[in-house]
């Protein structure tokens, strides 16, 4: 039994995951909303594609897949924070977390992984069924979710989805460290969240951004949340290029974990708990 043994973290993540799976109402409501907005976004894209004078850099079918994938992993984006952790920070009770023989960064990271995975899985599966099977059945075949470009693309997409969960969670813990900076606890998540939604391709697929912006957008960590997995899925990025995409996610995850650990250690060091 080494002190770095993963058992406590695994047990905590599993418990959190199970607890979150209970929120069926939220999942159902989210499913409905995100399907609706997925259709709206596809209609807007379709109008642009029809009116466009040049051939868009992303085939329409790939753009549709991009939108559906984006709607499915909507809650993966680091624009929401764990309300419990926010409360801990606001009330100054965050210090009590230190009463446990655990590493705080790892604890928050596994908590966040559970928080990101449970609702996404709850929605991803039914949304894919709707987008794959229900839409063609009701005569909206043009807007259906296409199958992955190949079996290899499908498998690599799964790997990159897992990579996106890790990346997003590492990013979220950096936000938590930012929460400790400002007592209000609103500014940092809003700032990072907005940036992530825009630069992650959740509003407009990244391939449709101007050429000059492409190198920057691809290099930023936000590309690993949705854009790279979507490119792999649709075959825009060939399986041979997928290794680089997975590497991008892993490197950024590593950087964000190091950054998060450093920030958290600094913040905890000067933390003040009111009391007496």
């Amino acid at each position: 039994m080494s002190p770095t043994d993963a058992r406590p973290y695994r047990a905590l993540a599993a418990t959190r995951f199970r607890a979150l799976l209970q929120y069926r109402g939220a999942a159902l409501g989210g499913l409905f909303t995100q399907t609706f907005f997925g259709l709206v976004r596809i209609m807007i894209l379709a109008a642009f594609y029809r009116a466009s004078a040049v051939v868009p850099p992303l085939p329409f079918e790939a753009a549709v897949a991009y939108v559906w994938l984006g709607q499915a992993v909507f809650l993966l984006f680091p624009w929401t924070v764990d309300p419990d952790i926010r409360m801990l920070v606001r009330s100054g009770n965050v210090a009590y977390e230190l009463c446990r023989p655990l590493d705080l960064h790892t604890l928050w990271l596994v908590r966040t992984i559970a928080m990101r995975t449970a609702p996404v899985l709850l929605r991803l599966v039914p949304m894919m069924i709707i987008a794959f099977a229900v839409l063609p059945a009701v005569g909206l075949g043009e807007w259906r979710m296409p199958a992955p470009a190949s079996a290899a693309a499908g498998a690599l997409w799964l790997a990159s989805f897992a990579g996106a969960v890790l990346l997003s969670s590492a990013m979220t813990v950096v936000i938590y460290a930012g929460l400790l900076w400002t007592v209000g606890g609103e500014g940092v998540p809003v700032l990072v969240g907005t940036l992530a939604v825009l630069a992650g391709g959740l509003i407009i697929p990244l391939p449709l951004f101007p050429d000059w912006a492409q190198p920057v957008l691809i290099a930023l960590p936000f590309a690993g949340l949705l854009d790279l997995p979507a490119r792999i899925y649709t075959g825009v990025l060939a399986p041979s290029g997928a290794a680089a995409a997975l590497g991008h996610q892993l490197v950024w995850t590593g950087v964000l974990i190091v950054l998060g650990r450093w920030l958290l250690a600094r913040q905890l060091h000067r933390i003040v708990v009111q009391g007496g």
């Binding site: 406590p8 047990a11 905590l12 023989p101 655990l102």
Partner: peptide, 12 residues
């Protein structure tokens, strides 16, 4: 009882 079980894991 589940809290207790979690604590068992946390304190190994």
């Amino acid at each position: 009882v589940e809290s207790f079980e979690l604590l068992r894991h946390i304190y190994r």
